[in-house]
Design a binder for these strands. Structure first.
Length: 295
DNA sequence: CGTTACCTGAAA
DNA sequence: TTTCAGGTAACG
């Protein structure tokens, strides 16, 4: 569920709540053992005990809860995970999968209906991360860096944006929104973008992610922040889950298709299938015909 | 490369 | 009852 803006919202809320707080215990609830990916909660509990949070960082959709013990708790929320900071004696919540007990009895809870989320304890955040592309809101995310990943690819541009090895942090909402702002058809081959389209796509990605962060993330279904409240970005989307509604810009009816197995929303008029090269109907048929034989 | 599996509840 | 879901890893 959470994409970069939702995870960044959690990071910003969590940091001031956690920094300086000490961990007194950690446990995983019965039936949720898989979230530790094979490790036992007792071994993690032993390593965490007494450690103090120093900073909270983010890489793509991953959160790093950094400790003064030079270790990092790396969390991925996947589809339905959330981190809740709860004061001592706060009521129990359904679907709580793991609990960090802090000094004074407060708790950091990992709540996750579908049990896809993960928690790792490592010495360096990178140790828990798969191959990830550039951070889209950093300076390293240039048009050239983006094109480096897209060039030569036949895959639909939508699928390429969801591949975390190309760019880190984009998910289904922001991929559709960025493609709408870019006037790009989601099924266009990733490697087919013209230079101007690449620049616009890079800028659109940054725009939609920055807007998402500014609105505290999007809450379409499950996403809630650290105290359980919702974001506002769902009120600002242009196409995502607006199937059969008129496009804000042109009034055409927004369509929903499946691309790479994911629901995909777009405006067929603003994001048309690009015209193929028009070799047949050239404006100067007599001169160009013999001169050029290649595409 | 696209498809399937992993889970579970809400909505259609 | 069936379909769907802000994600990814493991398939074929």
């Amino acid at each position: 569920m959470p994409e970069l803006p939702e995870v960044e919202t959690v990071r910003r809320q969590l940091e001031p709540l956690l920094v300086g707080r000490q961990i007194l215990g950690f446990r995983v609830m019965p039936g949720a053992e898989r979230l530790l990916r094979g490790r036992s909660d007792t071994s993690i509990d032993a390593q965490l005990n007494g450690a103090v949070f120093t900073t909270v960082t983010r890489r793509g959709k991953y959160l790093g809860l950094n400790l003064d013990s030079e270790q990092v708790v790396v969390v991925h929320l996947r589809m339905t995970g959330s981190l809740r900071f709860r004061a001592r004696d706060y009521e129990e919540e359904s679907f709580t999968r793991a609990i960090f007990t802090l000094d004074a009895g407060d708790q950091l809870r990992f709540v996750d209906v579908r049990k896809f989320g993960t928690i790792d304890l490592v010495d360096q955040m990178d140790d828990a991360l798969p191959e990830l592309g550039p951070e889209p809101l950093s300076d390293e995310f240039t048009t050239e860096a983006l094109w480096q990943e897209l060039r030569g690819r036949q895959q639909p541009i939508k699928s390429a944006l969801l591949d975390q090895r190309n760019v880190a942090g984009i998910g289904n909402i922001y991929a559709d929104e960025a493609l709408f702002l870019s006037h790009l058809n989601p099924e266009a081959p990733a490697g087919s973008l013209r230079p101007a389209e690449r620049r616009l796509l890079r800028q659109s990605i940054r725009q939609v992610l920055e807007d998402g962060v500014a609105h505290g993330g999007a809450s379409f279904r499950d996403y809630t922040d650290v105290d359980g409240s919702e974001g506002e970005q769902q009120y600002f989307v242009r196409v995502f889950r607006r199937t059969d509604e008129p496009c804000d810009d042109c009034g055409a009816i927004i369509r929903r298709i499946i691309v790479g197995g994911r629901a995909t929303h777009f405006c067929p008029k603003c994001q048309p299938v690009r015209q193929r090269g028009r070799l047949v109907k050239s404006t100067r048929p007599s001169r160009s015909a013999g001169a050029r034989s290649t595409l």
